[in-house]
Design a protein around this nucleic acid. Structure first.
Lengths: 240, 240
DNA sequence: AATTCAACGAATGTCGACATTTTTTACACT
DNA sequence: AGTGTAAAAAATGTCGACATTCGTTGAATT
């Protein structure tokens, strides 16, 4: 069975949903389970961009009533993964070139602020964890002689920094409302599949700045890190 | 009948809801109407912070079934106005000192980026509208010999700048997910009721920077504007 | 042939009832 | 009196059916 790794949770193809739901009962409510299942299906592209979501069909497919399904859709709306027009349709978001670039501009603003705060607020224990993560990145890249930082590790790194800001508002904006779209974009576009070896160097610089408790340096470094990613995307992305 | 002005929409006290719903049929769906009604009731404090929302009671009060009401609650969750714990409770958010300061940090990051983009992207027509708005502010303040920029005008100004960025992601993050909380905070705390006369000067500086098509100046100016607001709040806010 | 209108089908919105879980209350026991 | 347990009450979660709206098809008219 094909499985994808996202957010530390494994989820199988949608056709295997029956199996999945009988195996995993982590979430308390049906509606919450549906939310994560749909989220992952959208991120991976199993449900393609722009797809019109028919409540009746999906309810039948997942073998649930329309109530919980509608709630899941509302939540995904709040995560910017679904665009809903009342009385008409709910569609999976379409990642235009424009939207992606706007996404990275927003990420630049939020995450550079987050790391500035993190430089002040992170505990030394948390900084240690950052070290462990980039050491693992380094090791993995040497072993696989890969030019790319493994995506999951990259997400873990950035999310550790974000949480380190101790700012719940930024954390929610980034993790709940932005990163899903970024994961979706990266998952569905090989060329966006993380960063060159530069990324690892940049990660080290970020940790260094945090370690020095230097919010300005941390902010500038993170800003550059994200701008680099944005530039890479802007160059390589076809115009649509 | 007591009415409050928010987002260009008038809404009466909740006790008068029956009247309201028979008068205004602007929104297409019940669920959408409930969302705005509840949103405004939360912002004004008619539904107090921390209130536990009982679906049954509210459904009876508004004379609707629980379905649309639950959807409205999910949407308000997405706007950060309600915190929901599955199987337990949905509560109106509580604006702690900490949360407010985090909110302003986030706003600083997003809105300074927004204005930098606006300095590049705004049309001259849009800049004219900015002028009209701050001229109106100036006039109102002279006439009422007031030390404060009228809140509604202040929101209009900031929202014009945000839209001027032409960045839908930032726009949504700010207007849909942050400003409601800020409005809530300001509405329920006299002392936060906009800014000193400095604000008007700062608004002029921001427009000047945009006019000069100077994104760096615009960003710095906006950042200072918001930091000032934050500092004022930090000084005056009791510790809770 | 193109356009308009009407009827049909499909989809979303809304409702009331049932199921399950949580919280409260009351009672028994130490 | 305090604690623990069990029943009862209240609340959330879920379901299936009905209502309304939207989009489409097809026929009638110009």
């Amino acid at each position: 069975m094909l499985t994808f790794y996202l957010n530390n949770s494994i989820f199988p193809c949608m056709s295997d949903f029956a199996t999945f739901s009988s195996v995993t009962h982590s979430s308390s409510t049906l509606s919450a389970e549906l939310t994560t299942t749909l989220r992952d299906a959208i991120i991976t592209g199993e449900i393609a961009q722009g797809t019109k979501l028919s409540e009746a069909k999906m309810a039948k497919e997942f073998d649930v009533s329309r109530g919980p399904l509608r709630e899941a859709i509302r939540r995904l709306e709040g995560m910017n993964l679904i665009i809903h027009i009342p009385q008409q349709s709910a569609r999976v978001v379409t990642l235009s070139r424009d939207l992606i670039l706007q996404l990275y501009d927003t990420r630049e603003a939020l995450e550079s602020k987050a790391v500035a705060l993190a430089a002040v607020k992170m505990t030394s224990r948390e900084i240690d964890e950052l070290h462990r993560e980039i050491d693992a990145q380094s090791k993995q890249m040497r072993e696989n002689s890969g030019a790319f930082v493994p995506v999951e590790s990259d997400y873990r790194f950035h999310e550790m920094v974000i949480r380190g800001s101790k700012n719940k508002v930024i954390e929610r904006a980034l993790i709940h409302e932005l990163y899903n779209l970024i994961k979706m974009f990266r998952y569905q576009n090989e060329f966006a599949n993380t960063s060159s070896t530069n990324s690892l160097v940049e990660h080290r610089q970020i940790v260094y700045a945090i370690e020095q408790r230097d919010p300005v340096l941390a902010e500038v470094t993170m800003r550059r890190h994200i701008v680099h990613a944005r530039e890479r995307i802007e160059r390589r992305m076809s115009l649509n």
